[in-house]
Design a protein around this nucleic acid. Structure first.
Length: 798
DNA sequence: GCGGACTGCTTACCT
DNA sequence: ACAGGTAAGCAGTCCGCG
């Protein structure tokens, strides 16, 4: 039977594997025995310890020292003894690897991969993918055979089919006593509705309550009314249990534990959940809480392109599906059953749809991430990128029969570079100073995946930077005191380098050339998933929370990056090119010839084995004197706006609108003389907004700002926190504060509490000035030369 | 007492 | 709960000012 491995877990000190069988659409469980272990250098204090079942001296390969050494493998009959105290006292290796993850690595099982399953016996299905390696540069790679094998392994694994997984979204509504959300760990109140949406199911159970009327029923909603809450939940549990994968939005913290505790309270026998410390999990199926997926920082940025700023079901659905949560008037307790059911069902529908849109992007993405990180899908959906990368590296070390290093194994070298920003650990990237003004014909050249490419070509990894070999010491990392290994292929260099190459040379290509639309989308999803790993691979190495972090590695990567961009800018200038700006991995060049561009690309490829590409061409670009602050009009007429205040999420809507109108006007500019007319129109727009300011509705004047910390952690006296304190409900981390600037003594008021007459017009005029000046000031300079008029310094002159 | 220069805190952005 | 670099607004402090 062909099955895909989706999850692994533990129960009663046994391994439980969860396979998905697509023909029946069911989960197949496989149990196995496995003993946890860790390694120590001194076994004596552990000899008599309870929970330790066996200690054996064994030879391990220490990849940091690059030699074999003897350690003691400590087998644990009780994995619970491996707590912080144990770690502090005995400094064990491999003690922070989860029981079931360790099992997966040792058994050579990969989550997301297909297996053949017969009577509980798992056997591999070898699916080999062909990848054309010819055009992939091996420059700088130490072990080319290993590198090629790794690329083929990735391509084969990631190229495997992804089945459509049968799944069910559910959502519950609960009676509430007032403002507080009922405690899911108690389950004191009645469940009033529970809805289900899957491919072939679309209905809502509603509890009849004497005090609430049915009211009008929605024609498109299938209602089933219950008089008994117990019967309603029993039926609901049967449905939930019949699905392999369950989707919720915030089910981890609410729906799942609530249903578990309510089920216990009502004396229901067959509850399909197991209670862990704070949350409930499914006994048989797999629960994916989409809140975890959509609030994951890496996915938000690289997979969903920052399309939403708040992570609730409503905001995410609005941004990705263009659909809103059903609105209702009044209190959830008072609305008719008809409206309650419709509302409840809509939430399940949106939850389900968030996994189906764009050819099942989200489900496919999750499975691909499982494959790369070799991590159960339920963990992938709940954990952050540093855990995914950690798991990927742990598995690779186990495959190579290497001891997984601890950070204390790394040479004790502090940071050798000084950060520009206070409190940062080491020096980062370079940003060039742009010249103010309008520049026609700007080509933006950039190094694709610069940092992963540096890892690949300079053999950067935690066991290769400052390696123990004397003969490597001369292979210096420019701008640092560090060196990199010339003898042994580094594991980060290998894994990230090969991922980068298969992404660019295999999956990106297939995303354009594959035969069917479905295949093209799938390959595009793979490329997106890999991007998530590549983009974070450098960052985690400099983050203390990452178990394999090592500052010299992170610092070497940025040092090489600075060197490459500086040298390339110098080279370009030498070739007669006009480099006007650059940031980290890019160079903005004004009116280069085709020949110059090609020469520069060729030179950098030869010199660094990293490709420099023309990313985009601006018809014209406008720079203020500020870094990370410009806009460009691309050849297709689309505006590319970077860092300008008019684009920021905190800027009030009326001002964003004015800003966008101005940008629209500027996209019409084809040649320099068009600016005269554009300037006139822009002046009219700005003065129009100022003149009609008093007519702008209050909501359009809203500033928005996010509470990024726990409210009691604030040191300073921030305005948005002050606004939050005026609100009736306590503010919480992640909440977005909407406020109006007023002339009252508080200076700011929540949108809900402010009145139109309290608006501080002065402040808003300042805001208009601040946003507009970023566009108008740099253009004035050119206008002066265009029209011969004097310098214009402020908005009123416009 | 008032305002400018400055620092620190905070958010949002860029790569 | 991946990095550092940059811009901007606001709160608060210091200092000069007859």
């Amino acid at each position: 039977m062909k099955c895909i491995l989706l999850s692994a877990g533990q129960y009663n000190r046994k391994i439980i594997l969860k396979f998905y069988e697509p023909v029946s659409g069911r989960i197949i469980l496989v149990n196995d025995e496995y003993k946890n272990r860790c390694y120590v250098s001194n076994p004596e204090p552990l000899r008599e310890m309870i929970g330790v079942s066996n200690i054996t001296e064994i030879e391990v390969f220490d990849t940091i020292k690059d030699k074999k050494r003897n350690l003691y493998a400590v087998e644990l009959s009780n994995p619970n003894i491996m707590n912080d105290d144990f770690r502090d006292s005995y400094s064990p290796w491999e003690s922070d690897i989860k029981y079931y993850q360790s099992y997966l690595y040792d058994s050579d099982l990969i989550v997301g991969k297909w297996y053949s399953l017969d009577n509980g016996v798992i056997s591999k299905l070898d699916i080999q993918s062909n990848i054309n390696l010819e055009n992939i540069s091996m420059g700088g790679v130490i072990d080319t055979n290993l590198f090629k094998k790794q690329m083929n392994d990735w391509a084969s694994l990631l190229g495997e089919d992804i089945p459509k997984i049968r799944r069910l979204a559910f959502d519950i509504e609960v009676e509430s006593d007032g403002e507080k959300l009922p405690d899911p760990l108690v389950g004191a109140n009645r469940v009033t509705a529970i809805s289900f949406v899957g491919e072939t199911i679309h209905k809502v159970f509603v509890l009849e309550r004497s005090e609430v009327e049915r009211g009008e029923l929605d024609a498109n909603t299938e209602y089933i009314f219950y008089n008994s809450e117990k019967e309603m939940l029993e039926d609901a549990f049967n449905i939930i249990e019949s699905y392999p994968v369950i989707l919720t939005y915030n089910g981890d913290t609410f729906d799942m534990p609530y249903l578990y505790n309510r089920g216990i309270k009502l004396g229901i026998q067959n509850i399909p959940f197991k209670m862990m410390s704070r949350n409930a999990t499914l006994s048989l199926g797999i629960h994916i809480d989409l809140y975890g997926v959509f609030s994951n920082r890496s996915l938000k940025v690289y997979a969903f392109n920052q399309k939403y700023t708040e992570d609730g079901l409503g905001a995410v659905s609005q941004a990705l599906l263009g659909e809103t949560k059903t609105e209702y008037e009044g209190n959830l307790n008072d609305i008719t059953l008809g409206i309650l059911g419709k509302y409840c069902l809509n939430d399940s529908r949106l939850t389900y749809k968030l996994t189906t849109y764009n050819n099942e992007l989200v489900m496919n993405l999750l499975i691909i991430l499982c494959r790369v990180g070799n991590m159960p899908i339920d963990d992938i959906s709940r954990m952050s990128i540093s855990n995914w990368i950690k798991s990927m590296l742990h598995y690779a070390h186990r495959q190579r029969r290497e001891l997984i290093p601890k950070t204390s194994d790394f040479p004790n070298i502090g940071a050798g570079t000084k950060a520009i920003i206070k409190d940062k650990k080491y020096k980062g990237a370079i940003v060039l100073d742009p010249p103010q003004g309008i520049h026609f014909g700007v080509q933006v050249m950039d190094f694709a995946s610069l940092y992963p490419s540096i890892m690949k070509t300079r053999n950067i990894s935690y066991e290769t930077v400052c390696c123990p070999h004397p003969e490597c010491k001369s292979n210096k990392v420019e701008g640092t005191e560090h060196w990199t290994c010339v003898k042994k292929q580094g594991i980060i260099s290998l894994l990230i380098g090969s991922l980068k190459e298969v992404r660019v040379n295999h999956f990106k290509k297939l995303s354009k050339t594959a035969e069917t639309e479905e295949l093209r989308t799938q390959n595009d999803t793979i490329a997106q998933a890999l991007k998530v790993f590549l983009n974070a691979s450098y960052g985690v190495l400099g983050a203390e929370i990452f178990s394999l972090y090592y500052i010299p590695v992170a610092e070497s990567i940025t040092a090489v990056g600075r060197n490459i961009i500086t040298e390339t800018a110098g080279e370009a200038k030498q070739m007669g090119m006009n480099v006007i700006y650059g940031d980290t991995d890019s160079l903005f060049i004004k009116q280069p010839t085709k020949e110059q561009v090609e020469n520069l690309m060729q030179k950098t490829t030869e010199k660094y084995n990293i490709d420099l590409e023309v990313d985009k061409i601006y018809r014209y670009a406008v720079f203020s004197t500020r870094k990370k602050n410009y806009f460009g009009i691309k050849m297709d007429g689309k505006a590319d706006i970077k860092g300008l205040t008019g684009k920021k999420s905190s800027t009030p809507p009326f001002l964003k609108k004015l800003f966008n109108d101005i940008m629209d006007e500027l996209t019409k500019v084809m040649v320099e003389s068009d600016f005269i007319n554009a300037k006139k129109n822009i002046s009219t727009m700005i003065s129009g907004t100022i003149t009609n300011f008093d007519d702008i509705p209050l909501v359009e004047l809203t500033f928005k700002m996010k509470i990024n910390k726990d409210p009691n952690e604030y040191k300073g006296n921030s305005q948005h926190v002050k606004v939050g304190k005026q609100l009736p409900k306590d503010i919480e981390k992640g909440q977005v504060i909407r406020y109006i600037k007023t002339w009252t003594k508080e200076k700011v008021k929540p949108l809900e509490l402010a009145e139109r007459r309290e608006v501080d017009k002065e402040k808003y005029m300042e805001a208009i000035e601040a946003v507009m000046s970023q566009v108008t000031e740099p253009m004035d300079i050119e206008f002066d030369s265009l029209t011969g008029h004097g310098k214009q310094t402020n908005l009123s002159d416009w």
